[in-house]
Each structure stands twice: as structure tokens, then as C-alpha cells.
Amino acid sequence: MKTLLVLILFVSVQLFSQGNLPDSRQATFIEAVTADEVLIKSKGIGGKSGLFGFKEEESVKLAEIDARKAAVYLVVYGGAGLDGLVRSDEEKRKFAPVEQELFATDNVQKFVAWEANSFESRVKLAGGEKIRVEKQFRINRAAVMNYLVDRRVIAKLEDVTDEIGLPTLMALPEVKSGQNPLDELRSNAVLKQGASVIESYLTQ
């Protein structure tokens, strides 16, 4: 009986500590769509059972919510190809008190500028007791940044640039041997626009 009680307490603490954070942390950065928005593909996990067994549609909705959170989690903490907004130990310390607040379902929804109408994958897990979905989201990275600035987790960009200034960056297209990337930018409007978007994203 004592062992069972300890086990129940341990599971309860684990569930409570998870709070609003995503169950799935699986997300992949695809591209910067604009200077403010990034396209991310993420996975979410959801599972809900009732008196009459597994509730599939409700579980899918929970998995979608979790996938949105996983996409925002990537924006906050970063991953392959995408620098996180919260990086230093000091920023992480300041973020800890508001982390649960940021990942509340209603808040996360505000950061989603667009999401795909269909899943890229949808599979059952844990013997059919959970569902994992995967879909694409466009996350407003600038909105997440402003949220963190308002709560003094990270510094305003203006405050940082006043101290160290902005770097000078230039995005150049990949060209064949012997070709001049600057000439390609001047003559190709599509390449020029793409370079402009990348430069804006890197210096925002």
C-alpha cells in the first residue's frame, strides 16, 4: 500500500510539473516566410478516454493543440536551423516564472499565423490509447519576441543595438562556378526578393 501511494504521488508530480508545456517537443524549422514569421512542421500527442473507451476525435484535437505548442517551443528555445529567443542562462531564469503562462493554449493560438488544413501524418500510439499528428504551422516569431520583451525576459532589440550596433549582413544566392552572385541578384527579381527576406529575418 505504501509503495502504491508513493507511485501515485510520483506520477501526480510528473503530470503537474508538465503543466502547459507540450508533451511532444518534436518540431522542425522549414523556412523563414517573412521577417516576422517562420514555417515549422511539428508533431503533437493527445489521448483521452471516457466511460466507453478511447475518444478519438477529442484526442486528435488535443494532439493538434500539442503540435501548436511544440512549434512555439521551437521558436522559444531554438533547434536545428533556428536560433531560439531565450538563449542565455539569465534569460532562462527570467523566463521560468512565465513559461507556463506563455504555453497556455489560448496564448499559443495567438502566435499561430496559419496552419495547414490537413495532417502530414496521424498515427495511434500506446496500444491505441494516444494519437500523434504532424502538420505545418506558420508562427509569428515577432509576436513571441514582443511577449517576452513585455515580460522583461529578453531585452528590446533597440536596447541591444544601441550598445553593440547591428551587423551588416548580405544574403547571396548559390551560383555555378564562374558566375557572379551579385550579377544574379541584379538580374533575377525572385532571387533578389528571397535575399531581402533572409536579410530582414537575420537582422530583425
Score class of each variant (00 low, 15 high):
121 S>L: 03
132 R>F: 03
149 V>F: 00
140 N>C: 02
90 E>N: 06
110 K>I: 03
128 G>C: 09
116 A>F: 03
76 V>M: 09
142 A>T: 10
167 P>R: 05
100 Q>T: 06
130 K>Q: 14
100 Q>G: 10
80 A>C: 00
122 R>V: 13
137 F>C: 11
149 V>C: 05
114 W>N: 11
127 G>N: 09
102 L>G: 14
124 K>Y: 06
97 P>C: 05
86 V>N: 02
168 T>Y: 04
95 F>H: 10
82 L>A: 00
165 G>N: 04
159 D>P: 07
140 N>V: 10
133 V>H: 01
111 F>V: 08
84 G>M: 02
144 V>K: 10
153 V>Y: 03
161 T>F: 09
93 R>P: 01
92 K>I: 04
78 G>Q: 06
112 V>C: 09
98 V>T: 13
168 T>V: 08
143 A>M: 12
142 A>V: 06
137 F>L: 15
92 K>G: 10
149 V>P: 05
102 L>F: 11
106 D>M: 07
85 L>S: 12
121 S>W: 00
132 R>C: 08
157 L>T: 14
96 A>G: 05
168 T>D: 13
103 F>R: 03
86 V>W: 00
125 L>M: 13
163 E>R: 14
155 A>D: 10
92 K>E: 11
157 L>M: 10
156 K>M: 11
116 A>E: 15
167 P>W: 02
106 D>F: 04
159 D>E: 15
104 A>F: 02
85 L>V: 07
136 Q>G: 11
79 G>S: 01
132 R>V: 02
132 R>D: 01
95 F>D: 08
81 G>N: 03
157 L>I: 11
79 G>Q: 01
76 V>H: 12
78 G>V: 00
109 Q>H: 06
130 K>G: 11
77 Y>T: 05
90 E>V: 09
90 E>C: 03
93 R>G: 04
81 G>Q: 02
108 V>E: 07
97 P>H: 01
163 E>Q: 14
86 V>Q: 03
149 V>I: 15
128 G>A: 07
109 Q>G: 11
119 F>T: 10
96 A>N: 08
146 N>S: 13
129 E>G: 13
109 Q>A: 15
95 F>E: 08
108 V>W: 00
152 R>Q: 14
101 E>P: 08
93 R>C: 03
154 I>L: 01
102 L>D: 14
86 V>T: 01
166 L>N: 09
138 R>Q: 05
111 F>Q: 04
131 I>S: 05
144 V>Y: 02
94 K>P: 02
139 I>F: 03
95 F>M: 11
138 R>T: 12
105 T>K: 10
135 K>H: 09
